[in-house]
Design a binder for these strands. Structure first.
Length: 422
RNA sequence: GGAGAGGUGGCAGAGUGGUCUAUUGCGGCAGUCUUGAAAACUGUUGAAGGUUACACUUCCGGGGGUUCGAAUCCCUCCCUCUCCGCCA
């Protein structure tokens, strides 16, 4: 969430930035300033009254100690009057605070100045393209057919065991998953990220911290009995490692990577783009997360984009990098790059990674701060990206590298997979 | 699942109704000493709101209550630990 102090000082700027997202309720910004004015006024009133109550109470204690009961009783009566006066003001203060919080939580993050205006994915800007588009052999097949042909993935079996969107990886299909996960983790740790293996169920506070709650409640699987959520991404447990922490400036940047399965209910998405590996309820992903000094977060964003780009290049897949427009960005992001890989047999681009700078939007909610040189605590900036999500990578590897009677694997996978082909 | 213990500032750990504006130790920071470091000594050191700066207010797991006054008493919820049981 945005910081009230910042909004107060930059009302017009905040509105102008929100407009880039086509955010329809710009009047909320004014409401926030108004509510905060009220809050300050009521706060001052309750504080002053409370201060007098405290002073009287102290006096009463001293009078009682001296045995001066009459005067003590008199003071007690005064305090009772003050408390009666305080009650309605305190009530109003609580109401105003709640209204303020309820309002501010509705505002999405402010897009960075480099974020293009726009409403739909068509307005995203292609930053660059890379990788080679291999010529496919005659009779090239989509990955769901290839998966069947080489007995790598059984979607129907997943239906039987669990339901649609929970594929079963078999034999070389299973080994490919393992090889990719290990390769990605090694690639990330070699670049200075520390590997974590976090829980894949999180409590309510963690889900709230990264912003899955309250907005995206229906998108997470929920374990009612224990009030826990299955994570939709490693971002949730990993970023929450530092929730409510105040770091030393020298601890920054914090660089973390984690492999986890990810669980998404994908409620409301039926039919479209759900074939094969394109959209699953359970999938594997290796994530990178950084907590950085606020002055440095955009450099780090570019660095993370380069990191993911190098990883994609090493897989020998044709890709493009898009800078998302205001209308297509996630609620919490200030700037997002999407990576898409071209699926030759499906003849379409599939998103395989999303790298974002959240600035202080997440960390304000999680209260992840650091002490700056002057000893003041400031919010750190958080960033994360997929590095990488497996299913669509697998889809593209199968489709783009299919040959006569086998599927060629890119060089870095050979040692992990134990072979250069499937 | 059963029984018990407990949640206090970065950590450890006092505090069971009124100078608690929370003792002390460790750690951190600054200084003295030192060629430098260590040790020792001295000082300093929680967070949020508020203020130009002070003042002031709130926070002792969360919420509620009793009281003139609550870390301390009561209710309730959450969490952690130990032992037993079950179990990878």
């Amino acid at each position: 969430m945005l910081q009230v102090a910042f909004i107060r000082q930059n009302v017009d700027f905040v509105k102008e930035r929100l407009a880039v997202r086509n955010f329809p309720e710009l009047q909320l910004v004014d409401s926030i300033v108004r509510l905060d004015d009220q809050r300050k006024k009521l706060q001052l009133e309750t504080d002053t009254t409370q201060s007098r109550i405290n002073a009287f109470s102290k006096e009463i204690g001293q009078l009682m100690a001296k045995g001066n009961k009459e005067e003590a009783e008199q003071k007690k009566a005064e305090v009772t009057t003050l408390k009666a006066a305080l009650a309605p003001i305190a009530g109003q203060l609580t109401e105003v605070e709640e209204a303020l919080n309820a309002t501010i939580i509705r505002l999405p993050n402010l897009p960075n100045e480099a974020v293009p205006r726009g409403k739909t994915p068509e307005d995203n800007v292609t930053i660059r393209m890379g990788g080679r588009r291999s010529a496919l052999p005659a009779g090239a097949q989509p990955h769901w057919d290839l998966a069947k042909k080489y007995n790598l993935i059984d979607f129907e079996l997943g239906n039987k065991i669990t339901g649609s969107g929970f594929p079963v990886y078999i034999n070389k299909g299973a080994k490919l998953q393992r090889a990719l996960i290990q390769y990605f983790l090694d690639f990330n740790t070699a670049a200075g990220y520390t590997e974590y293996q976090p829980p894949i169920l999180v409590n309510e506070a963690s889900a709230r911290g990264t912003g899955q709650l309250p907005d995206k409640e229906g998108q997470m699987y929920y374990v009612n009995e224990d009030n826990l959520y299955l994570i939709p991404t490693a971002e949730v447990p990993v970023t929450n490692i530092f929730r409510d922490e105040i770091l030393k400036e020298t601890q920054l940047p914090v660089r973390m990577t984690a492999y986890t399965p990810c669980f998404r209910r994908e409620a409301g998405s039926y039919g479209k783009d759900v074939r094969g590996l394109n959209r699953l309820h359970q999938f594997d992903k290796v994530e990178i997360v950084q907590l950085v000094h606020p002055t440095n977060s955009y450099n780090v964003l570019e660095e993370m984009v380069l990191h993911v780009e190098r990883l994609l290049q090493s897989l020998d897949l044709p890709y493009r990098i898009l800078r998302l427009c205001g209308g297509d960005m996630g609620f919490t992001s200030a700037m997002t790059y999407d990576f898409e890989v071209y699926s030759a047999a499906q003849e379409k681009w599939l998103e395989v990674s999303s790298v974002s700078n959240f600035e202080a939007f997440q960390t304000n909610r999680m209260k992840i701060r650091f002490k700056d040189a002057s000893g003041k605590s400031q919010l750190v900036h958080s960033l994360n990206g997929s590095s990488l999500a497996l299913p669509r990578i697998v889809a593209c590897l199968l489709e783009n590298h299919q040959a006569e009677g086998y599927i060629a694997l890119p060089a870095p996978l050979h040692k992990y997979f134990g072979s250069d082909r499937i």
